[in-house]
């Protein structure tokens, strides 16, 4: 666009260098911008958002006399449904030594495999070494949706 002027040789080579610097710079810059963008566009290894936390499922799909572990942030939560159909949620962290408890349908208790701690379905200790009852979480049922929320 700019017309060549009466430039002598050394200035000419300087101009060439600048041209390369500009061109190279633009190319590198494009790389620096588009590499993250393309990497971002590539679907991540884990296909989709991990559904975690508070939404625990549909009430109609939770069996009576069952208990499942629901991930609640960084903590596991034991959601149980009693034979009467009531849904309760407790911290699944055993109060004894922080193992993760499980629901035992045969004995109808929440049970910790580590030291045989047993809690009833209200989270109270009924056997074994746990010193405290399980912390209870709030269960909210909206329409058919079971939402577990921390008790504050």
């Amino acid at each position: 666009m700019d017309t060549p002027t009466t430039l002598d040789q050394p200035q000419h080579s300087k101009r060439d260098f600048l041209k390369y610097l500009l061109g190279g710079g633009i190319l590198a810059w494009l790389g620096a911008v588009f590499y993250p963008v393309f990497a971002y566009l590539k679907p991540p290894k884990q296909g989709d958002v991990e559904v975690t936390s508070v939404k625990a499922g549909k009430l109609s799909e939770i069996e009576k006399e069952s208990g499942v572990i629901v991930r609640f942030g960084n903590k596991p939560v034991m959601m149980i449904r009693t034979a009467e159909g009531e849904v309760r949620a407790f911290s699944a962290t055993c109060t004894h030594l922080d193992c993760t408890v499980q629901f035992r349908k045969d004995t109808g208790v929440i049970w910790c495999a580590c030291h045989n701690g047993k809690y009833d379905l209200n989270g109270r200790v009924v056997g074994g070494p746990p010193p405290r009852p399980l912390d209870e979480y709030r269960v909210i049922i909206q329409a058919d949706e079971v939402i577990i929320s921390s008790r504050t």
Partner: peptide, 25 residues
Amino acid sequence: YKGSEELAFESIQFIMAKVEFGWLI
């Protein structure tokens, strides 16, 4: 991003942690 109550937060968490350069964007 997923614009729903249950997934909004998780999807941003996902963008930040799982998607390459998601944190940057």
